[in-house]
Amino acid sequence: MSEILIKDKEIVVPGENLAKGMDCLPGNGTYRDKEFIVASKLGMVNVDGRALKIIPLSGKYSPKRDDIIIGQVCDIVFSGWRVETNSAYQAMLNVRDATSEYIEKTADLTKYFNFGDYIVAKITNVTSQKLIDLTMKAPGLHKLSGGRIIKINTNKVPRVIGKQGSMVSMVKNATGCRITVGQNGLVWIDGEPENEIIAVDAVKMIEKESHISGLTERIKSFLEKSTGKKVIVGEVR
């Protein structure tokens, strides 16, 4: 019978033994060394029955399939666009996956996306060599114009979005801004200039204070104070 050596939700560091015995399963961020399951990342342990995994608290974005990210066009090549992804690797957006309209082989690709343009795109594939393919052919994917981009810690993205988007909708409703959060930690905010600033501050506050309980309440009162309007929590738009 195996023995779990740590508590659920405990913070562990690399090299720490998590469990002893052969009937435990090593999940993400862990590995097996003989009869031990060992942490290989700094993070919070999640014990799910016999399966152990680590939820990372820090680190750069690592591209995953089906993630929706915000990227910046950094190069235009024969077959499409190269996109900066806020990770160690650039992604490739092929001409075929860029728009639903037909693009002539000789067409000037800057007409569609120019250097420096930000786009919301979905990752269709990541190879072992970290070649990333993007697509723009899905609902909600588009080029971003206007507004501003801020960078946040990738691991805080789920907190900014909230349960079923509750957190980001609250900020949207309160400030009237349009907000898109990319899984790679880039956030696009567009609205009235003064409201944009409030939204930026709110997102930064969520990022900074995400680990202190009562976050939703604090963000709510912050938004109410700065916009001077009543904020409704939990309404998903």
Partner: peptide, 11 residues
């Protein structure tokens, strides 16, 4: 290195 969230066998 651990703080940077990298995969490490051990400290």
């Amino acid at each position: 290195l651990a703080d940077a969230g990298l995969v490490m066998k051990s400290m």
